[in-house]
Simulated assay, not measured.
Amino acid sequence: MTSPDGLLPALTFGDGPRLAVAVHGITASAMEWPAVARCLPADWTLVAPDLRGRGAAAGLPGPYGLQRHVEDVCALVRARRPRETVLVGHSMGAYVALLAAVAEPGLFDRLVLVDGGLPLPPPPEGVSVDEVLQATLGPAIARLSRTFESEQAYLDFFRAHPALADAWNEDVAGYVRYDLAGPSGAQRSRVVEEAVRADGRDVLVRAGDFAAAWEALTVPGVLLRAPLGLFGEAPGLLGDDAVAEAGRRRPDIVVDTVDGANHYTIVLDEQFAARVARRIAGE
């Protein structure tokens, strides 16, 4: 359900006058941000909405897609009218954040993209978008239709993930618990598969829009990049060629490679989350 003011449900961390609005990844939720929020200075508040089809917003109606998320995020910021707002996006959330910052630049003072936001390579000739989705997000999508006997079974399932096994901590456990719903013996993820597929297609087919947005961006920005990818191994999600091309086109946008981080631990592991927090705070 929505919050009383009709906006996306959101988690709020801190109570400072400076605002960071943090947008999560494609099968994630607002609970990917506590470690980052904890590392921010005391004069910051971090607000993390659950996007449609995820977390506490799982029951919100479609249509899904990046443009709908852009509209939702901008509405949330307009309603708060803070003195200063930094927009942060991780993974798919980085694409939402980039498009939002270009659509309504007056709402945001700075933009922080975390392992996302750059155009991804198009599908090879003869390979469909859905086949690429299956190759990249197949295991994540498969979990959405699977049921689990207990909370512990769901925790064990995540703990076996190669990107998380060696970085397990209470933030990861809290993130996993928040995603779980349903009765004992038949619990499952709250993420709506239709939303993931719609959003994933957008990320793959809108490369031209992301390139144009990168060129048109007027809000000061920084890109943090994880050198390890979705399964905890090199290469990272953002390839060297894509990063080099982005730097050539926009040398004013800082690219910061977070050594040792993978696509998930860059926000879920405090040692890397602290780097994200410093960039949000403008350090």
Rank of each mutant, 00 (worst) to 15 (best):
A142F: 06
R80H: 12
G65L: 01
R201F: 12
G59P: 10
L8M: 06
W168L: 03
S91T: 06
T265F: 02
A56G: 08
S145W: 12
R159K: 11
E215R: 12
R188L: 03
T85D: 03
S128A: 14
R197E: 01
E149D: 12
G117M: 07
P49L: 07
L8S: 02
L8V: 07
L99M: 15
S189W: 01
Q67P: 12
L155N: 02
P124K: 05
V70M: 05
E215C: 11
R80K: 09
D252P: 12
I266F: 10
Y175G: 04
Q187L: 07
R279Q: 12
R159N: 09
G25I: 02
G185I: 11
I26T: 15
T85W: 01
P183V: 04
P105S: 14
L8N: 08
D109L: 10
R54T: 08
R54H: 10
G232K: 03
A165C: 14
A213K: 09
A273R: 01
E194V: 15
L76V: 13
D199M: 08
E151P: 08
E104S: 01
R249T: 14
A153V: 05
A213P: 05
R81P: 06
F108R: 00
D15V: 10
H161N: 13
S128G: 11
S184P: 14
D5L: 15
A165W: 08
L118A: 09
A135I: 09
P9M: 03
D109C: 14
G53V: 00
L133W: 08
T257D: 09
A28T: 10
L11Y: 07
G182C: 06
V36M: 01
W33I: 06
V23C: 06
R279P: 11
V21K: 00
A57L: 01
A234S: 13
V73T: 00
C74K: 13
L11R: 09
E149I: 02
A20H: 03
R250W: 02
L8Q: 04
A198W: 00
R143G: 06
D109A: 08
V77D: 02
I253F: 14
E125P: 13
L11N: 12
T85K: 01
E104C: 01
G59Q: 10
R143A: 11
E149T: 10
G236V: 03
R201T: 12
A37E: 07
E194Y: 08
T12E: 11
G89A: 02
S29V: 14
R18F: 11
L118N: 05
S3G: 15
A22G: 05
L204R: 04
I280V: 08
A242R: 13
L120Y: 12
A246V: 08
F231S: 10
M1H: 12
A212R: 07
G16E: 00
V254R: 13
A246K: 03
A186F: 00
A28E: 14
V36R: 03
Y175C: 13
R248D: 11
D179W: 09
H161P: 03
P227M: 04
V205T: 09
D241Y: 07
